[in-house]
Structures are given as structure tokens and as C-alpha cells.
Design a protein around this nucleic acid. Structure first.
Length: 919
RNA sequence: GGGCCUGUGGCUCAGGUGGUUAGAGCGCACCCCUGAUAAGGGUGAGGUCACAGGUUCAAGUCCUGUCAGGCCCA
């Protein structure tokens, strides 16, 4: 007779394999239908004690998403859900960054430069808007395909009218605090196109230039500092003679040695030899000194006799030239920076066409200055060389890589123009400086990982004033009026409020479309004739830096509150969004916009190298979803140490798939084994093995919970995986089979195991739900009532801690015994002496074993008995402490039903099975 | 070149304030089961803790330097 049918074998509709790539999209579609999942999450936690608000950092609305986006959004989703399944109210409103140069360039590429220039600004902006909208739709679908849940029905976009108005309002707040200033700063300038260029609009090409060494005589004070009477000249080197009229200073390296030569020249010691070889000078070293003794003294320009300040700068290198750097703050980024430090005026004698203007006359920058006015700078080089006369120590030509305009393909120049800045070090209206306030605010933020505070802190400490103006079309205008007669901007609150109101209704396009008279509120008292519009737009970092206001504070979004609980982005955003948001929020409100900042690293390939198209090691999220399933990608995120670089490759994904399979199958078995249970057995009626696993699970789950609450998912999942593989699947489920399969349906011994299984399953599912939301949802569909309770789907789940129950079971001792037992068993099996441990009986007088119920004890080792003495054939023995365990062959017969060797007669049922069948 | 960070078996990760033969899971090899079966179980082999110095009775753990990699600047 086949007794198989009399057993209570596992039964479940939950399949072993998930067919994730085929099945995931269907479930996701249901979740996102009418934002059902997100709405349910909001409803279920209404008025929860705690609230967690994740404020989304906006991706740029251009292109498809890559694996980095996927990591970012999945991690956000896991964190939001972690808070959710632990019982908190959550908010997550995703958003997009829409303005900025890359989109403008895409549009220009599409319609061509000529057409772009002929179209009205509002038309171009409309095309940019279309482009952004198209990619927002694409990316939104791609993010949803990753199972990321949020307010997809009403995401934020920085180009929405209300949003543009709020960005502008944030700017007004900064202005009102007195932190908005105008100053000249050099930018890339295409004289051919008469426009400022962004970094991305510059291409490098070869260009032939002069290489000249020029002598600048020291003034008396400087000579005195050097303790010399005779004349001495600082030698500078430059490739752009035309910038010499704007020379304001000479920079020395503060660390390096400088020398005075016998022929009266001053150069860096490290370069003296090379200058001798080039025959720039002939003298030997007469005196060595550090440049700080010359600091703030003067040399004289050989061109115009004006003072040139001697200053110190870290940017001065020893890899060429003379170690004494010609410094013209109007014509170079580094020159400008060091100039700021020494309070040096920005001289800018070149107009937008690249010609000298009246400045050269007014300031006397050249001899016979009138003859230079309207002369193009590149045509002035030769005349300037001539004017230098004997001061020109050496002149040659060479070819080097030089920035060119990407449209006109003409060389560009650095040219100082008026720009808008947010002042870092201005003490206005009785407040600390922005830098001080921001630094203080950082100290109140909790960083994950903690090193983030150093990174953001040192950036705030060292950054220059924030230049927020751009000379572009696709952005929020710096919409201020300027008084034509005084040149002063008008920061009148009523005027600004009215402008903001217009933007809210018509978008920022109004700034281009409407007349000044229309933009002023009726009865403002200003004369439109005497006003002009500032036509610069805002740096897009200011846009995203304002999202705390435009999203968290806005009534347009159900986004939670300001400040947010957390900002979460890649570590590159220390430079970007974390900083811009901190500065705008601190400037406007005096506080940081976030309580916590969490950063993740970048995705790299198996070798730890960055992904690039040229290397061909790029992994696309969609390919992973199609090959492995989104759950695998999500599990990869949870298993990875995200604070550092994250490696991803086929091998790694395969490994993650194995882990997923283990989790899935264990859950399957858990479901199958708790099937049919009506209610949880009271703890005091449970068997010792069941009490042991409950006790152990409690310890593990508590620890996992603590890890997850600190966002340490990889550690939490390691603990969980270990528990699932070793104690749960490896031991407990294996040793429970006899009790579950062979005993009667209503027997306590069976109900006890089922109860422990159900209690563990509920918590286990809630712990993995933030990561494997899809899988848990699928599990619940097939879960028996005792696990499912009144839940409709995964979103009804709530994690609760397990009860603490005591157990009189020395797990460490019993584990050791089990390990030693199986060491011997392995040999017995390999030697073909036995096939199954059920053929064996253990003989021991161990007190620790004696106090355990004998059925539980034999199940622990999966043997047919544990006795204190036996006459069976000796198969080996082992010791735990002082206790001896002897392994012997079972002397009774194999029960055809339960396979234990406990039957008194051949082919006869054992006592237990007999009772079960005849009950 | 500067700032921040990372480097433990094939893979993913543990290793408070330095202290026994460096741990785990996965993978791999071998074996068992066929009543979780495109599952389950057992045993085992894998590590110069990137490298080189130093501090110390003692260093994966502290210090210095080098190399490799990442992000951000210049």
C-alpha cells in the first residue's frame, strides 16, 4: 500500500519560479492604475505617529534612464517603504529638472542655429518645454517599470508655471535678505558670436600663439623688501600679449623658492635653469628668497607704467613659464579668484566684439590709447610686442590646444562681464554670513554615511560666491528691473510679487513676451521708460535649490512638509543639489531643508571601473528587467553596500538570482506548511523546537529591524539570508517535516510547528516587503488565511516585533552535536553504509538531551530515536563536552508510512502512524 | 595637482575602543534524498586581510607612504 496519500504533504499555489520578466509588468500596471498603491499607502497610515518625507532630487528631463538612475530610485523606494512597513506615514513626490543648456542645445540641434535665432524666445522656450515633457513621459514610465511607487499623478516639474514663479520667489527672498550682488567675472566669450558660452559650448582646437617673456621692474618698496639698491625685474610669461593692458598683478607661489639673478631678474628657482637654457636670462643666482616678502608690494607695467601688485597664489605651478604669473582678473578664472582675495579691480577693456573700448583711454592702459580703440585684440598683439621694447625678453611662436566657439569655430576669450552672485561672506541685516549659517546648519544634519558632513562642509567652507546668472534662453529669468539712470536693480517687494503672480499665471515666458509697462503693477509709481529688464536667466542649480519651496511648501503638491526628513542622491550631489538646496534654504529661511542626507556611490563594472559607452561595459536597467526581473535588480540594491561604489555584472546578478530563489522557495515552503492552520497555538503548548526557532527568529528579526532603520540594508539582508539558509531552511524546516507530514491534522505537535511557521512568516514577509514588494504581494495572494489575515495585498502589511519567549534548549550545545553527528554521517553515506539518518539511533546519557521531549530530540538529528542504551550495530561516536554520543543502527523495522525505523514488525506501521490512520 | 571615499577567499558582505588557529552566505567540489523535486539536505576545499614601512609584547584593526579604483574640484 502506498501511504503517500495519507500524509499531509505541503500544498500551495505559490509557484517555485516567479517568471519575473513576464509577470512583473502586469502587477505593476495594477499598482499604478489610478495611483492605487500610493494612495492606499497614504490612506493606511493617515495620522500615524511618525511621518517620513523623502524629497526627490530631480533627474534631468533628457535621455533615457541608466543604471545609476535605477539605483537611485530603487533605493529611494526601498527607504520610503521601509518607513512605511514599520508603520510610518510617508510622502514621496518625484520630480524633474527641466530647464538648462543641454535641452536648449538639443532643440538647437533639431531646428538649426539660424532658425533658433530668428524665432521669438517664447517659441524656443515652447520647443524646450516640449522636449522636456517628452522625456519626462519616457522616464516616468521607466521609473514605474522598476516598481517605484510615488505620486506619479502629480510629480513636480521645474518648468511648470507655478514652479517657475516659486523659483523666482525664492530668488526674491535671497535678494530681500541682501545677499544678491552684481559683480564682474570672466566667462568664456565668443566675440564672433557676441555671446557668453558655457563650458559645454567650448571645443578645443589647435591654435598658434606667441610665447613671450616680459620684464616688470620692481618699485622701490619692493626693492627695499629684497634689501637691494639696483634695479630688478620680475619676469612674467604669457601667450596672450593682448591681455597685458589689463594686467593688475603678478602671482607667486607661496611655497616655492624664488631667486634674484646677477643680471637683475626674479624667477622661480625651480625654473631658473630652464630659463637660462632658453636664453631668457643669463645671470646666475645671487639671492634666494620666499615670495611672501614681496606680498602686497608693486612692480610696474612696462606697457603703461601702471602698478602691478605682487601677490601669492596656490595656482602658480612650476611646470612652465617663470613661476611669476601675469594676472589679469578680467581675462582669467584663476586670475579672477586670486584677485578677489587681494581685492584687486577687474579691468575689462574689451567690448563684446573683441575690440578694445574707451576703457583703454580712460584708464590709460596703453600708450597712444585712442589708436587702439575699436581695434580687435588679436590684431593688437604685434603692436603691443613692439611697444614692450627692451622689456620683451624673448618672443617665439608655438601651437597649443585652445578653446574655440562650437558654432563659429573662432577662438574664444575670457572676458569679464556683469554677473549675479549670492554672497557667501556678506553680513547683512544683523545675520551671520551665509557661509557661517550654512556651516552651522550642516552640523545639525544627520549624514549617511557620516563622512558626508566632511565633504559638504569643506565645500561650503571653500566655495566662492555663487554665480547664478547665465546668458541663455531656457530657464527662469532673473526678473528684476534696472533703473536706467542709476544702473541699480529694483528689489521692491510689490513689484517682485506682481512679477511672480504673472509668472504663476503665464509662466516665466511673460518676461520676454510682455512690455515693462505691463509687467509693472498698476500704480507702481515707476516710469517704464526709465527701466530696463535684466535679461539673464538663473543657473539651473538655483532651480533645483528651490525645490524645498516650490514642492515642500507648495499647496500644489501633497509632499509632506518643509524641512524634509531626507534628501537622498548620488555622492556627486554634495557639489550639486545638497549644496544648492542648503544655500537657498539657509539664505531664505535660515535652516537646512533636510534632517538627514543619504548618499550612494556610483555603479561600476565587475572590475570596479566606471561604465562608459566606449568601454562597452554599460548595463541597462531594462535589459536586467527583461533577463532577470526587476526584483533581482531591487535585491541587488539591498544586498550592496551602497555608500561606496556598486559593482554590477552578469555574474553578480546571477548570484543575486540565487539568493532570490532561496528566499522565494523558503517562503513557498513556509506557506505550504502553514496551510490549514486556524489559529495560533498558545506558546505554552508549543514544542521545544518550535519555541527555539521563535526565540531565535526574534533575535534575528530585532537585529535586522535595527539595521534597516539605520538604512544598513546589506547587513540586514545578510543576517536575514543567513537565518533563512541556515537555521530556518537548513535546520528547522528540515527537522519539522516529520511532524508536519506524518502527524494528525489536529494534533498539538503539528499545530505547534504550523504556528511557529506562521508567526515567523508574517514578520519575514514584512521585513522583505520594502525590497521585494512584488514578490510579497504575489505571496500574499497564495497565503493561507492564518498569514494573510485581513490583508488584501502587500500594502496592508505592517511589521510587528515578535514576542519574547523563553526556551529551555541549549542551542549552542545542540548545534555542536548536530555538526559532529553530520561529519560522521557524511562518511557513512560516502562509504555507502547508510542512505538515510533515519536508519540510525543515537545513544547518549547527555542531560541536555534527556530533558528534551524524545520525539523533538530524535527529530533534531533526523534519526529514528535517541535512547540511553541500545544493542544496535556501532557506527561511530562523538563527544560534546563530556557527553558521549554513540551512533548505532536502528534495531526496529522501517515504517512504510513515515520511514522512521520504529515498527515492531516488517512492513507494519509504527505506533504513531497506526494511531494517526485509525483516529 | 587638491578634497572626500574605497580596496578582507571566485562573488556579496561581517569583523565596537588593536589580543586566541580571520568569519558568514552564495558559488564551487564530493555525497545523500526523491514525500519542498527545474526543489531539499550534508561534508569539504578556498584568504600574502591591495602593497611597503613604522608604533606596539601584540595590527585586518593605529600612523606614514605607494599602488589601484570611484566621486567632486583644479
Amino acid at each position: 500500500m502506498d501511504y503517500k496519500d495519507t500524509l499531509l504533504l505541503p500544498k500551495t499555489g505559490f509557484s517555485m519560479r516567479g517568471n519575473l520578466p513576464q509577470n512583473e509588468p502586469k502587477r505593476y500596471t495594477q499598482w499604478f492604475n489610478e495611483d492605487k498603491a500610493y494612495e492606499k499607502m497614504k490612506t493606511n497610515r493617515k495620522n500615524a505617529e511618525k511621518k517620513f518625507i523623502l524629497h526627490d532630487g530631480p533627474p534631468y528631463a533628457n535621455g533615457h534612464i541608466h543604471i545609476g538612475h535605477a539605483l537611485n530610485k530603487i533605493l529611494k523606494d526601498i527607504i520610503v517603504k521601509t518607513h512605511y512597513f514599520f508603520g510610518e506615514e510617508v510622502r514621496y513626490v518625484p520630480g524633474w529638472d527641466c530647464h538648462g543648456l543641454p535641452i536648449e542645445q538639443q532643440v538647437e540641434k533639431k531646428i538649426g542655429k539660424e532658425k533658433k535665432e530668428s524665432l521669438p524666445k517664447s517659441k524656443i522656450r515652447e520647443l524646450c518645454r516640449e522636449h522636456a515633457r517628452k522625456f519626462i513621459d519616457i522616464q516616468r514610465d521607466e521609473f514605474k517599470a522598476l516598481g517605484v511607487i510615488g505620486d506619479w499623478k502629480n510629480p513636480y516639474m521645474t518648468m511648470k508655471f507655478e514652479f517657475e514663479a516659486d523659483i523666482y520667489r525664492a530668488l526674491c527672498e535671497v535678494a530681500t535678505k541682501g545677499l544678491l550682488i552684481e559683480r564682474s567675472k570672466p566667462v568664456y566669450w565668443s566675440w564672433a558670436a557676441r555671446t557668453a558660452l558655457a563650458e559645454a559650448e567650448v571645443e578645443y582646437e589647435d591654435k598658434e600663439d606667441y610665447s613671450i617673456y616680459v620684464a616688470y621692474p620692481l618699485k622701490d618698496e619692493a626693492k627695499k623688501a629684497l634689501e637691494i639698491e639696483e634695479d630688478a625685474n620680475v619676469i612674467i610669461w604669457t601667450t596672450t600679449p593682448w591681455t597685458l593692458p589689463a594686467n593688475m598683478a603678478i602671482s607667486f607661489n607661496p611655497e616655492e623658492d624664488y631667486v634674484l639673478t646677477t643680471d637683475g631678474f626674479i624667477v622661480a628657482k625651480a625654473l631658473h635653469e630652464s630659463l637660462l637654457e632658453q636664453e631668457v636670462l643669463k645671470g646666475e643666482i645671487k639671492k634666494t628668497f620666499k615670495a611672501d616678502i614681496l606680498e602686497n608690494l608693486y612692480a610696474k607695467s612696462p606697457l603703461n607704467g601702471k602698478d602691478s601688485k605682487l601677490i601669492l597664489g596656490e595656482h602658480v605651478t612650476m611646470d612652465g613659464g617663470s613661476g611669476c604669473v601675469h594676472t589679469a582678473p578680467g581675462h582669467g578664472e584663476e586670475d579672477y579668484r586670486v584677485g578677489l582675495k587681494y581685492n584687486i579691480e577687474v579691468m575689462m577693456p574689451v567690448d563684446e566684439r573683441g575690440c578694445y573700448d574707451e576703457t583703454v583711454v580712460r584708464e590709460g592702459l596703453l600708450p597712444d590709447p585712442e589708436s587702439f580703440v575699436n581695434v580687435h585684440i588679436f590684431k593688437a598683439n604685434e603692436r603691443i610686442l613692439e611697444l614692450l621694447g627692451d622689456s620683451l625678453l624673448k618672443c617665439s611662436k608655438f601651437t597649443h590646444s585652445y578653446p574655440f566657439c562650437w558654432r563659429t569655430h573662432k577662438p574664444v576669450i575670457y572676458r569679464a562681464t556683469k554677473q549675479w552672485f549670492i554672497a557667501m561672506d556678506e553680513e547683512t541685516k544683523g545675520r551671520d554670513t551665509l557661509r557661517q549659517m550654512a556651516t552651522q546648519n550642516i552640523s545639525k544634519v544627520k549624514f549617511y554615511p557620516e563622512s558626508g558632513i566632511n565633504r559638504l562642509g569643506s565645500m561650503i567652507e571653500n566655495r566662492p560666491d555663487w554665480c547664478i546668472s547665465r546668458q541663455r534662453d531656457w530657464g527662469v529669468p532673473i526678473a528684476f528691473f534696472r533703473d536706467k539712470t542709476t544702473g541699480e536693480p529694483i528689489f521692491d517687494e510689490k513689484v517682485m510679487n506682481y512679477t511672480a503672480m504673472i509668472f504663476e499665471q503665464r509662466g516665466a515666458d511673460a518676461w520676454w513676451d510682455m512690455e515693462i509697462s505691463e509687467l509693472l503693477y498698476p500704480g507702481s509709481g515707476y516710469n517704464p521708460e526709465n527701466l530696463e529688464k535684466v535679461m539673464d536667466i538663473l543657473d539651473v542649480w538655483f532651480d533645483s535649490g528651490s525645490t524645498w519651496k516650490a514642492v515642500l511648501e507648495s499647496r500644489v503638491y501633497d509632499s509632506g512638509a518643509y524641512p524634509a526628513s531626507m534628501y537622498l542622491e548620488g555622492s556627486d550631489q554634495h557639489r550639486g543639489w545638497f549644496q544648492s538646496s542648503l544655500l537657498v534654504s539657509t539664505a531664505a529661511r535660515g535652516i537646512a531643508p533636510y534632517d538627514k542626507v543619504l548618499t550612494h556611490g556610483f555603479t561600476v563594472d565587475a572590475k570596479g571601473e566606471k561604465m562608459s559607452k566606449s568601454k562597452g561595459n554599460v548595463v541597462a536597467p531594462n535589459d536586467i528587467a527583461k533577463q532577470y526581473g526587476v526584483e533581482i535588480l531591487r535585491l541587488w540594491v539591498s544586498l550592496s553596500e551602497y555608500t561606496t561604489d556598486l559593482k554590477i555584472s552578469n555574474e553578480i546578478l546571477k548570484q543575486v538570482s540565487e539568493q532570490y530563489r532561496k528566499i522565494r522557495n523558503t517562503c513557498r515552503f513556509l506557506l505550504a506548511n502553514s496551510e490549514g492552520l486556524k489559529e495560533i497555538l498558545p506558546y505554552e503548548k508549543m514544542g521545544v523546537l518550535d519555541r527555539w526557532i521563535l526565540n531565535h527568529a526574534k533575535k534575528v528579526f530585532d537585529e535586522v529591524e535595527a539595521c534597516f532603520k539605520e538604512y544598513d540594508f546589506s547587513k540586514g539582508f545578510s543576517l536575514l539570508s543567513h537565518f533563512i539558509a541556515v537555521e530556518l531552511s537548513g535546520i528547522y524546516l528540515d527537522i519539522s517535516k516529520d511532524r508536519l507530514y506524518c502527524n494528525g491534522e489536529k494534533e498539538n505537535i503539528r499545530l505547534s510547528t504550523q504556528s511557529a511557521t506562521a508567526l515567523i512568516t508574517r514578520r519575514l514577509l514584512a521585513l522583505i516587503a520594502p525590497t521585494l514588494t512584488y514578490t510579497v504581494d504575489e505571496i500574499l495572494e497564495h497565503a493561507p488565511a492564518i498569514i494573510k489575515e485581513d490583508m488584501d495585498d502587500v500594502f496592508d502589511m505592517l511589521y510587528t516585533q515578535m514576542d519574547n519567549i523563553e526556551v529551555d534548549f541549549d542551542a549552542e550545545y545542540m548545534m555542536e552535536a548536530r555538526e559532529k553527528f553530520f561529519e560522521i554521517i557524511d562518511n557513512l553515506k560516502k562509504e555507502k553504509v547508510i542512505k538515510s539518518t533515519l536508519e540510525l539511533v543515537l545513544v547518549t546519557t547527555s542531560e541536555k538531551v534527556a530533558k528534551i521531549n524524545s520525539t523533538d530530540a530524535e527529530d533534531w538529528f533526523t534519526t529514528s530515536g535517541i535512547v540511553s542504551e541500545s544493542t544496535g550495530e556501532d557506527m561511530g561516536s562523538f563527544k560534546v563536552g563530556d557527553d558521549t554520543f554513540k551512533i548505532v543502527k536502528a534495531t526496529e523495522n522501517k515504517c512504510p508510512r513515515c520511514w522512521k525505523f520504529k515498527s515492531s514488525e516488517e512492513e507494519g506501521l509504527c505506533k504513531r502512524c497506526d494511531e494517526v490512520l485509525n483516529a
